[in-house]
Design a protein around this nucleic acid. Structure first.
Lengths: 210, 210
DNA sequence: ATAAAGAAGTAACTATTGTTACAGAGAAGT
DNA sequence: ACTTCTCTGTAACAATAGTTACTTCTTTAT
């Protein structure tokens, strides 16, 4: 574990902190598709991502979803932190987008380290800042762009996260994450295909890089 | 200043920290309508609100706006903090919604206090958490609700912030903040009036409490 | 092999939101 | 009083997104 930690967090944290993390942190592998934070749940530890990706979702009153953003290696869930410390319930759902390796930090340590290590404080603050900015960009997408542009952005972002330009997904799945209907997505995907931006197959979409 | 501080922050901070704040903080009065953070600007200090309200806005590529949320007394701008510390530019615009009194904290002190005072750390984390949740609710409004519901929420929120059920505003102003057009707002306001939820006057809207 | 379930394509229609255009009412300035 | 400007109301139309319904094709299950 200490090697993986050094690889992804070595430039951020001093050796002493890395050792503490290795000592108290619990290594965890989360398989793709596994839900690991649910809305309304109390959260008792904070994840440090080593590999893979986590998607963070919001839910409406009818139980339908909206993708907020992805967490990648080197990221943490800022939301989780204050949930832990403030003893409030989670406002979001987190699901593994890929097979993901992470280290869970117990809540007491997080608090301790914010007093003890400047590098940890900076990491936590920066993490908040990053997540905040991601939410702002999510708002931009929803408020300022039409569904066709949101869809294209979504596909391109998915390519970035999965490191694959062939996305294994269905129209229905995309519709869930963009909070719209399957028919709308099929229609717009066809439009994007006609524009040469993507190629449609059953259960997969090839995103053209140009 | 120390009295105002004690009134709004006395239950949060220990006396020693309150004294430090009073020592290095710069008291400022911002008149209604005054812009005090602009997008792309570097921010060098962090505001603690004593009275009044600040509206926080996002801008699209055409220069049109969208209201994100309001800050009130006891609040701080979490965004500002990491902007200061990370030396990044502001992603948002902040304008005084009412005449506002606040204390500006220089960036060096903020950093120092996060190491020194547990109460300050908790305040900062909680502030991030609150702002994050407000953004989530903003996303809910935009993504999950139609414009008529967003409009009603907007009006009710404005009543809460201003403590007035007679809002002095124009349809055009509302349209800016909800990122739509004046005609749409006029249409929906008329609908709300017919439902008995509001009364329309020139330059003002009475929001019925029932 | 046949049935059933899942995925995608598409047409037709509705609802919501955005746009253009114009008219009237009231306020402010000359 | 008269002009000008701002604010509001409304009609007519366009664009975007959501819904229902049905078809075809593929995969999976029996």
């Amino acid at each position: 574990m200490i090697e993986a930690l050094k690889e992804h967090y070595g430039s951020l944290f001093e050796t002493e902190l890395l050792e503490e993390i290795a000592e108290v942190g619990i290594f965890k592998e989360v398989p793709e598709g596994h839900k690991f934070i649910e809305i309304g749940e109390y959260v008792r530890s904070m994840p440090l991502l080593l590999s893979g990706a986590i998607k963070v979702l919001r839910e409406d009153n009818d139980g339908d979803e909206l993708l907020l953003y992805f967490l990648e290696r080197g990221d943490t869930c800022a939301m989780t932190m204050t949930c832990c410390m403030g003893q409030t319930k989670s406002e979001i759902r987190a699901i593994a987008e890929l097979d993901t390796q992470l280290i869970m930090i117990p809540v007491q340590k997080m608090e301790e380290w914010t007093g003890k290590y400047r590098s940890w404080r900076n990491f936590v603050f920066e993490s908040y800042h990053d997540r905040f900015n991601e939410l702002l960009h999510t708002i931009d997408s929803i408020a300022f762009f039409n569904m066709d542009e949101r869809l294209l952005k979504y596909l391109q972002n998915k390519v970035k996260i999965t490191q694959e330009d062939l996305l294994n997904t269905t129209h229905q799945e995309i519709a869930y994450e963009l909070h719209t209907s399957r028919v709308v997505i099929s229609r717009l995907l066809k439009k994007l295909e006609n524009l040469g931006k993507i190629e449609l197959h059953r259960n997969s979409i090839k995103v053209n890089s140009l």
